[in-house]
């Protein structure tokens, strides 16, 4: 039986928190030694909000992002997305949830090297049973929006870092996700490409897209509605 959230796709209620965590913990065990990375995170993110997560290296920024984006399973605590606890979904439901509701932009772009720019964007749409012709139309539209319209059939290896990241964004937003997660999306890019990526995020957010972005660059974090600061696995500031 699929999780109830999988059948739910509404962006109308702006007053509710789209993401809520309480007592979120994540530990790693190495032999007998347990290292606690997240030590009880409580946070709320509103629908349509652009949130940047900052902190020093090792503060737990990426770990927090992986937990709330369902790429990892927390050791303890709750993750509510649209009011439903998703922390303990089974693998199958997690995958289906990620496909339908979440979008990802990774630091190293994470494009599939055997697929062209267009095919990288088409694939998740096909997985969602979007008819092939429509999937290609949507993909072309998305790639045009991020400025890759002229290089649709290029393999990732033939694109620059900035171009690859824009393909990655096109893939992440093609299925209109409820939340877009970005993990250090500008870390591998030059300043011009970084600015282009941040501009795309701003544009998406202006149109109502909820974005959660991990970054260590203050300049880009300032673009967000709110910055959450982490230190030693705890939220120390949110402004």
């Amino acid at each position: 039986m699929p999780h109830p959230l999988l059948n739910k796709k509404t962006k109308t209620d702006h007053s509710t928190h789209i993401i809520e965590t309480s007592g979120l913990e994540k530990s790693f065990t190495d032999g007998n030694k347990e290292t606690k990375i997240l030590k009880g995170i409580d946070l709320q993110i509103k629908r349509g909000e652009f949130v940047a997560i900052m902190g020093r290296s090792g503060a737990g920024k990426s770990t927090l992002l992986y937990q709330i984006s369902l790429l990892d399973t927390p050791s303890a605590g709750k993750i509510l997305i649209e009011g439903v606890n998703v922390a303990n979904l089974n693998t199958e439901d997690r995958t289906a949830f990620r496909l339908k509701e979440l979008g990802y932009v990774f630091q190293d772009y994470a494009l599939l090297p055997d697929l062209s720019a267009r095919e990288n964007v088409v694939l998740p749409l096909l997985m969602q049973n979007v008819p092939k012709e429509n999937a290609y139309i949507i993909a072309d539209d998305m790639l045009n929006r991020v400025g890759i319209g002229g290089r649709l059939d290029n393999l990732p290896g033939k694109l620059s870092g900035g171009e690859q990241q824009r393909v990655s964004i096109a893939r992440a937003i093609a299925h209109e996700p409820t939340i877009l997660f970005a993990d250090e999306p500008t870390a591998n890019l030059d300043s011009e490409s970084s600015k282009m990526v941040i501009d795309i995020f701003k544009e998406l957010n202006k149109n109502g897209q909820t974005i959660v972005m991990v970054t260590h660059e203050e300049e880009y974090a300032k673009v967000a509605d709110r910055i959450i600061y982490l230190k030693d696995g705890l939220v120390v500031d949110s402004k």
Binding site: L71, T95, R98, L99, Y104, A110, P113, L123, R171
Partner: peptide, 12 residues
């Protein structure tokens, strides 16, 4: 890449 596929929601 298999991890990425799963990450973006492609069924195992």
């Amino acid at each position: 890449f298999i991890g990425i596929l799963k990450g973006i929601g492609i069924a195992p």
